[in-house]
Design a protein around this nucleic acid. Structure first.
Lengths: 198, 198
DNA sequence: TCTTTTGCCTACGACTATTAGGTTACGTGC
DNA sequence: GCACGTAACCTAATAGTCGTAGGCAAAAGA
């Protein structure tokens, strides 16, 4: 019987494809084995466990998205760069919902350190450098952008925005623009001009 | 043999507690049955399936958090209300990580409509009313706040912010303040004052 | 006290993860 | 071209999961 030619990389790739098709939560060792026309036990010569397999899918997604985001941002600055980065995240998530879900997986710290996660952070910092923030504010801003992008796309994919007007696309554009404005005014501590209620 | 006195409500409550202890993903029918010193099959007289059980846990969490958030926001306005709402979310997630994770579960639309999800939206809109946004902008802002809160807390719980300075608390405060500033300036379409690169 | 309801149990089938140990295809040295 | 050794894949087995069918007994009502 001819061999299937399994490797950890091909399994991770196949797992990522499977995740996009049936959802990351539904990815199983048995299911992936079926996809490669192989018995489940065979996978254990290439990945340590089901958790290991899922982590590898997450790493594939992180790397792919980092590549895409870098390309998208290249040659752009400030609001255009911000929009390009946000759209890279959002488009990737829409095209590859399973891979995107995998990226939310909590990786142990050593795996996280060896992942492409830091590339994402560096890319954001590169964009933020143009907004002239202090070192600490830059970190706050990285966290804000990461939170908002991840949160928005998660909610959008889970259907939270699909049953109400205006369209999600519209909100997304407003939010990107809003974040740009916020970054411009970050250091300015405007007083709350509101009067107390009534 | 004395009966355990199971009901759908008690199971949902027990499932929520179990989720906080071992993680929402790890909640199983079998595990919950052990917790009630009952055989797994018995649970099926009160919940339809494992998915049904998890959805009920999500509903419990949505209701609890809506209660907390309402109380926290009562009597506050603008930035104070925004901070109270955000802190209600964040504190709830820290105290009840399993319940919080349950809230991210995708509910089918009829269950979602009957849930306390709309209460969350109404509460946000009440706060946003004080920022004098247009109807559409108010929706955009609801989506921004929801995304940012949910995204920030998710990333924080997954440990993304715990291995770097400054502290997550600091970022959180800056982000709340930043959102307030953004809401104040929402309608103002400031031109991008940046020159093109070099 | 007898009957009915219903809450919980036993038993089972189908699926998953994972390990142990056997077999066979393939590349390498002769 | 052939034997050999390694590694790729297999069979078999254990254990844990969800979910269904049918039985028994406790609680509630007459």
């Amino acid at each position: 019987m001819a061999r299937a030619g399994l490797t950890a990389e091909r399994l991770a790739q196949g797992g990522a494809d499977l995740a996009d098709e049936i959802g990351f939560e539904q990815v199983t060792v048995a299911g992936l084995a079926r996809r490669f026309k192989v018995k489940p036990a065979s996978l254990y010569f290439h990945v340590r466990s089901s958790a290991d397999l899922k982590a590898r899918v997450a790493l594939v997604a992180l790397a792919e998205l980092a590549d895409r985001a870098s390309e998208a941002v290249a040659g752009r600055s400030r609001e255009a760069a911000l929009a390009a980065l946000g759209n890279a995240y959002r488009n990737y998530a829409h095209e590859h919902p399973g891979r995107f879900a995998a990226m939310q997986l909590r990786l142990d710290s050593e795996t996280a350190a060896r992942s492409d996660g830091p590339r994402h952070t560096r890319l954001m910092r590169a964009i933020l450098r143009e907004y002239q923030l202090s070192e600490a504010d830059q970190t706050h801003a990285v966290r804000l952008l990461g939170s908002t992008f991840q949160g928005y796309v998660s909610l959008e994919l889970s259907g939270s925005f699909s049953h109400s007007e205006p369209s999600s696309n519209e909100s997304w554009e407003h939010i990107i623009h809003g974040l740009h404005i916020l970054l411009q005014n970050w250091q300015v501590r405007q007083p709350d001009t509101a009067n107390n209620r009534e």
